[in-house]
Amino acid sequence: MNQLLRDQLKQWEKQHKELIKEGRKKISKRNSERLSESEVKDLMGVNMPTYKRGKGGAWRVSR
């Protein structure tokens, strides 16, 4: 690396220390939300009605 370029880089780093520190901060992890098994199944749509294509349109098929 060129000596002049190194000096410029060191000078820039001294002037912008707070920007460098902000870039190095780790992103804090969010607290994960605890869901029950039934809530997870509901979000996935397990309990949704299923429809079957038929002669008169769509018919609900019960389980």
Rank of each mutant, 00 (worst) to 15 (best):
M1E: 15
M1H: 12
N2L: 09
N2K: 06
N2G: 05
Q3I: 08
L4P: 04
L5S: 13
L5Y: 08
R6L: 14
R6F: 08
R6C: 07
D7V: 09
D7L: 14
D7K: 12
D7Y: 11
D7T: 12
L9H: 10
L9R: 07
K10S: 11
K10N: 08
Q11G: 05
Q11V: 10
W12R: 12
E13C: 07
E13Y: 02
E13G: 05
K14L: 13
K14V: 10
K14R: 14
Q15H: 11
Q15V: 08
H16D: 01
H16L: 04
E18S: 08
L19N: 12
L19S: 10
I20T: 02
K21H: 14
K21V: 12
E22V: 03
E22H: 05
E22I: 05
E22Q: 15
R24V: 13
R24F: 14
R24G: 13
K25I: 04
K26V: 04
K26L: 13
K26F: 04
K26H: 05
I27C: 08
I27Y: 06
I27F: 13
S28Q: 15
K29G: 08
R30T: 07
N31S: 09
N31E: 03
S32E: 07
E33M: 06
E33Y: 04
E33Q: 09
R34M: 11
L35W: 02
L35Q: 02
S36V: 00
S36G: 06
S36T: 07
S36P: 01
S36L: 03
S36K: 02
E37A: 12
E37V: 12
E37R: 13
S38A: 13
S38T: 13
S38L: 14
E39S: 01
E39P: 00
V40W: 05
V40N: 05
V40P: 00
V40C: 09
V40K: 10
D42K: 15
D42Q: 13
D42H: 10
L43N: 06
M44D: 07
M44E: 11
M44H: 05
G45Y: 00
V46H: 10
N47I: 02
N47P: 00
N47G: 10
M48N: 14
P49K: 00
P49V: 00
T50D: 03
T50R: 08
R53Q: 02
R53A: 13
K55Y: 04
A58Q: 08
W59V: 14
W59T: 15
W59Y: 14
R60H: 03
R60D: 01
R60M: 06
V61R: 14
V61D: 06
V61T: 09
V61N: 14
V61A: 09
V61M: 11
S62V: 15
S62H: 15
